[in-house]
């Protein structure tokens, strides 16, 4: 896997924040999150400092319960931090109110969910364009066509989710996440509900979105094979950053996980070695 240097695509709207390889799109500073109180208190995130570069595909990797999802929720402004800060570009998302967060989610962030979460009563096309419509904007047709072509959805636009395979549904979800040209797309276990063939398909599309369309993607996964599609893997254990791997291969990721395991107390059993 080679790390191609990011070449900004010609996109006027994004010039203002024109990310380069070295400007982090997302940053966490001493980010901490605790759930519950007293005896039952869980420190899901414990003073996390991490940067995510723009125009890159980064995987957050770690055993189940290590805090991957929590980190992502805080970075995306979906949940409030107990202490510390999370920045999207120069915006401190931990300081925003609900209205500002809604606007942030509309314009600057996209999501891909494990369960696809498409609206069953809308067609693929309606699902894809929904975020733009909610924001009261007009769909950029050229961008829409680019997305649909890249994701191989041209033939499926009039289908409803129930008429699509899992992989196709997740590709629609990726298109939906990208339609508003957000600064960053967060994906939480996007292949968790897919068979391995569809999973590979989706991961390839995610990587193409970064390489060919110049997007920034942060993906949470516990699957080393999936993580290997990323440009960089951030390892997390027990709510702390435990290391990172550039230009990962499945073997490198597995090795990294093993290293974690030997450092840490027994990790939960569902860190499954990749089968593919």
């Amino acid at each position: 896997m080679d790390t191609t240097v990011y070449v900004p695509i010609d996109d006027g709207a994004r010039d203002a924040v024109a990310p380069t390889d070295h400007v982090p799109a997302v940053r966490a500073r001493a980010l901490t999150k605790t759930y519950g109180t007293g005896q039952a208190q869980v420190r899901a995130l414990d003073g996390v400092d991490v940067d995510f570069a723009a125009g890159r595909f980064t995987a957050i990797m770690g055993p189940s319960g290590s805090g991957k999802s929590t980190l992502m929720h805080l970075l995306a402004g979906l949940d409030s931090a107990t202490s510390g800060q999370a920045f999207l570009g120069t915006t401190d998302v931990t300081a925003l109110g609900d209205k500002a967060l809604t606007r942030l989610r509309r314009d600057r962030v996209g999501f891909v969910f494990q369960q696809f979460n498409l609206l069953p009563m809308f067609t693929a096309e309606q699902n894809i364009t929904l975020p733009v419509e909610l924001a009261g904007g007009t769909v950029d047709r050229a961008w829409f066509d680019t997305l649909v072509t890249t994701l191989g959805l041209s033939e499926r636009l009039t289908h409803r989710p129930s008429e699509l395979s899992g992989g196709q549904q997740q590709r629609v979800a990726i298109a939906r996440a990208l339609i508003a040209q957000p600064e960053v797309v967060f994906a939480d276990e996007p292949t968790g509900n897919l068979d391995s063939r569809s999973g590979v398909e989706v991961l390839s599309f995610l990587r193409r979105s970064v390489r060919e369309l110049g997007r920034t993607i942060i993906m949470v996964t516990h699957d080393p094979t999936a993580a290997a599609y990323a440009d960089r893997v951030v390892l997390i254990a027990d709510g702390r950053i435990a290391g990172e791997i550039s230009d990962p291969t499945p073997e490198a990721v597995l090795a990294g996980l093993d290293a974690l395991r030997s450092l840490e107390t027994p990790v939960s059993d569902d860190v499954t070695p990749a089968g593919a």
């Binding site: 809604t102 989610r105 369960q115 609206l119 909610l134 508003a180």
Partner: peptide, 16 residues
């Protein structure tokens, strides 16, 4: 529930 949450995540405001 999940659908409402999704909509909120992709930018549906409380008022909407």
């Amino acid at each position: 529930r999940r659908e409402s949450a999704t909509l909120r995540a992709i930018g549906l405001s409380k008022a909407q």
